[in-house]
Amino acid sequence: MVQSQITGNASEADEAARFQSKVDREIKIEPRDWMPEGYRKTLVRQISQHAHSEIVGMLPEGCWVTRAPSLRRKVQLLAKIQDEGGHGLYLYSAAETLGTSRAEMIDALHEGRAKYSNIFNYPVLSWADIGAIGWLVDGAAIINQIALCRCSYGPYARAMERICREESFHQRQGYEIMMSMAFGTKDQKRMAQSALDRWWWPSLMMFGPSDRESAHSSQSMQWKIKRVSNDDLRQQFIDMTVPQADYLGLKMPDPDLKWNEERGHYDFGAIDWAELKRVVSGDGPCNKERMTARVKAHEDGAWVREAAAAYGEKQRLRKQAAKIAAE
């Protein structure tokens, strides 16, 4: 008994060492490979949270798809929302390779046990917000996701590569909407500035807490689930976005934002972490609406899913009966 326990521990330690050595040598971890329980849990949490963000993110955009102002914009927005649903699917599939079913993940979301990107808890007030979401929110997502293409877990890294290609298209479309608004009429310009004012800070918060505060970062870095720190990604996003706002002739809602020659980066003002905490914990302007809409869609669809399952079962039994009859 004692002997076998020792053997068990030794082999566990060997497995862990082998695992870390693979990670260190940039060999992807695949679903059937041994992995530490913490690695599996972290990935399920992170990938499902990412999948939930895609599907919750369909709601604020869906709220404007029926009001898109031209046929071309309507088609673009529908295509974008459809891509997001597709991203949700690949991500749920990637998470399922770790042994948690999509139904379990969705239940966790609906019961408030799983999170989704905080950004979708803000209201989408004008058509320029659709532009700002593409430009800033998808822009921030791409920066996060490009880093994730090098994640140590194979299925997640591969899903990310595909998603990144589509996201960069969304980002360009978003910026193009911002151009038509910022260079448009006085009313359009006002909508564009208001959208930037409201979406800028929440976009910066998308990179998560500062490295000093981040609860999950150091272990994730060692496992190479995370490759670049929150603060570095955030800085990269700011440096990329400020000149784009300048080109639009819009004013960034941050009086402390200025180029720092010495650092070779923009300095920026303090992020209101209390707000992030408040919105993440459920007290944002749209948290309740988003979850109510998701839960309603799920509950309203229960009879449809039951019908599909019942029909599938009938078909299976019919095929079985036909096979027996033929024999």
């Binding site: 369909m58 029926t66 649903g85 597709g86």
Partner: peptide
């Protein structure tokens, strides 16, 4: 398009 995000299952939303 009024169904966006409200389908009975993700595949149907898509």
């Amino acid at each position: 398009s009024e169904w966006c995000g409200k389908g009975p299952v993700l595949e149907e939303d898509i």
